[in-house]
Design a binder for these strands. Sequence first.
DNA 1: CGGGATCCCATTCGATACTG
DNA 2: CAGTATCGAATGGGATCCCG
Lengths: 114, 114
Amino acid sequence: MARSWFTQPPEEHKEVCPVTQTQDIIAGKWKIIILWHLSTKTRRFNELQRLLPNISKGILTRQLRELEEDQMVHREVYKEVPPKVEYSLTPLGKSFLPILHSMGEWSKKYLKSK
Amino acid sequence: MARSWFTQPPEEHKEVCPVTQTQDIIAGKWKIIILWHLSTKTRRFNELQRLLPNISKGILTRQLRELEEDQMVHREVYKEVPPKVEYSLTPLGKSFLPILHSMGEWSKKYLKSK
DNA sequence: CGGGATCCCATTCGATACTG
DNA sequence: CAGTATCGAATGGGATCCCG
């Protein structure tokens, strides 16, 4: 889903639904799982890729860049050879963890695992 | 986003991330706003369409059907002429409202409105 | 009134090859 | 190691027409 605006009739009353704003941030296919894996510790790019076995580099990069744009994730580049890049949650990212947690609890409580 | 499974290497350790399961349910472009409009009261099809000015009938129907499949929304058909259909939240749908609310609060608290 | 069926389009995902 | 670039495939949204 694209970053969607919830617009009233054009030009009339543009308004953003706050819940939708939240939704947009975590809407990428892998974003939630990335946040989950970063919730406990800082991780390197390759580490994340191993944790997400079916993701390709390009996609992982894009998802991380978008989370970075939204200031959920911090990217720390070490100028070494070979390169080393570490990803971690920003304060904003950490502040979102309770919601992630409650989504998980809700799922386990109410959704029959299909 | 499609209903995505978080799979370990094929055939090896299929597992569904609970948080992702939750995400999948509300991932449709209009689902959150539909749930929002149903949170206070039962509404008819046309009423929902008026509340969501930029949605087409086909899409609204599809979003509602998917919410119904996921048992978030109940569809009550009155056998009248002209037809009358009412949508309301199921108990499952209602149980989700606190999360919707906390997503909204998080957004308003931490996200600078762009 | 409340849809279903169809077609089209934009976005996103994903595979592959290449690179500092 | 951690990317970038490119391209094709899949998904989901939207418009339009038809129907009981």
